[in-house]
Design a protein around this nucleic acid. Structure first.
Lengths: 178, 178
DNA sequence: TCACCTCGGTTCATTCATTGAACTAACGAT
DNA sequence: ATCGTTAGTTCAATGAATGAACCGAGGTGA
C-alpha cells in the first residue's frame, strides 16, 4: 500500500478529508465498515445484509484490505475460506462512523434512530462524539452494545444479519456462525 | 423536504448511517460541506477551490439546501446573488467531518495532516472526537481555528480559497469578500 | 449605444462506475 | 454422479460524473 498514491480523483485536494473520502467515500464502503463493526465477517453475510452487487462487494473489500482497514484471513482450510476483520486502523474509524450515524439518526430518521449504542459498563447511550455521558470518557467500540432503537425495522429485512441484530450485540464480536 | 423519502438507493437499509450516506455519501458532497465550515459561501469559490464540474456543484448545493444542511440566501440585490451558509443542522455535522478528517490525517497522510484545528480559548489541537484535550470539553466549530499543518500544500493550489487558508482562520467566519 | 466582463448557473456528448444476471471453481455431502 | 455451499469473476446494460460550450441578468467603460 503506497501512501503516496492518491486514488483517481480528489487528487488536487490538499486535504486529509479528501484522502479519507478517496477510500471511504465510495458507494457502499462505509456501510461495509459499519457491518464489520457489527461483527459481520463473511462475504456472503455482507452480501445478504447489504443487497450490494457481488462485484462491487469484492472490489470494496479488496480496497479496504489494501488500505489496511480490514484483514483477510482464513477461518477454515479445505475448502479454504476467508473472513474480513477490522484492523486497529479500521477500528479507529469508530468515531467517524458513530458521528455520521448519530447525525443521520437525529436529523433524517423520522421515527428516531434505528439502532442505539450503549456503553456496557454504565448502560448509557453514547453521544455524537462517541463519549459516554455517564462516565465522561470516550467509549471505544469494544465497550459498546448495539440494540434496536425506536425507528428499527422500518423496511422489515429478513437476512441472517438483520435477525441477529434484533437482540443486543457487542460491537466487533462475531455476529454469526463460528 | 419529506423525511420519509429516502433517496434512490440504500433504501432497504434500515439504518441511520445509510440515511446520512444517502445525502452525504455522494461524490463531492462532504468536501462542499467542509468548505462551508472553512467559510466558503459562493458558488464561484466552491468551484475554484474544489475543481468540481459546474453541474455537479449545482446539483449538490441544491441537495444540501433541500436537506436543510445549507441555506441559500441573497447577499446582494441587483444583480441578485446568493450565498450558501451552513444551518444549525449543517453545523452539527462538525463531529463527523472532524472525525473523518482526523482519521485521514493520521492514517493516509504521509507528511502529516495538511490542516490543524485548534481550540481558540486554549490553543490546543482537538482530537478525533472533537474534544479539546486541554479543557476536556467538546469544542464547537465556532471556537476553532484552521491553520496549515505539516503536510500542507503538497500539490500547490492557487485559487483564492487556498490562498486565504494559508493563514489561520476561524471556522464558519466568511473566508472571502464581504 | 455597444462591446465586454462577472456571476451563477444549464445543456449536452463522452467517459466511467454501478448494476444484476449468469457463470466459474473448489470442495463436501448424499 | 449430482447437488449444495461459499466466494468469487465476467459481461452487457444502465446511470452518474465529467468538461466544454452555452445562456441570461446585470454592471462597466469607451
Amino acid at each position: 500500500m503506497d501512501p503516496m498514491a492518491l486514488g483517481k480523483d480528489y487528487e488536487a485536494q490538499d486535504c486529509a478529508l479528501a484522502r479519507a473520502l478517496e477510500l471511504l467515500g465510495e458507494r457502499w464502503t462505509l456501510l461495509i465498515v459499519r457491518d464489520a463493526f457489527y461483527g459481520v465477517r463473511r462475504y456472503g453475510d455482507f452480501l445478504a445484509h447489504l443487497d450490494i452487487p457481488r462485484a462491487v462487494l469484492a472490489t470494496r473489500l479488496q480496497a479496504l484490505v489494501d488500505a489496511g482497514v480490514l484483514t483477510r484471513r482464513p477461518y477454515q482450510e479445505s475448502p479454504r475460506r476467508h473472513e474480513y476483520v477490522l484492523t486497529e486502523r479500521g477500528r479507529e474509524l469508530w468515531p467517524a462512523l458513530n458521528a455520521l450515524g448519530h447525525w443521520g439518526g437525529e436529523h433524517l430518521s423520522p421515527f428516531g434512530p434505528s439502532r442505539l449504542y450503549t456503553h456496557l459498563t454504565c448502560g448509557t447511550r453514547v453521544g455524537r462524539t462517541g463519549t459516554c455521558p455517564a462516565c465522561g470518557r470516550f467509549a471505544p467500540p469494544e465497550e459498546l452494545e448495539v440494540r434496536p432503537g425506536p425507528g428499527a425495522d422500518r423496511p422489515h429485512r429478513d437476512d441472517a444479519v438483520s435477525r441477529a441484530l434484533r437482540r443486543p450485540h457487542r460491537l466487533l464480536e462475531p455476529l454469526l456462525a463460528e
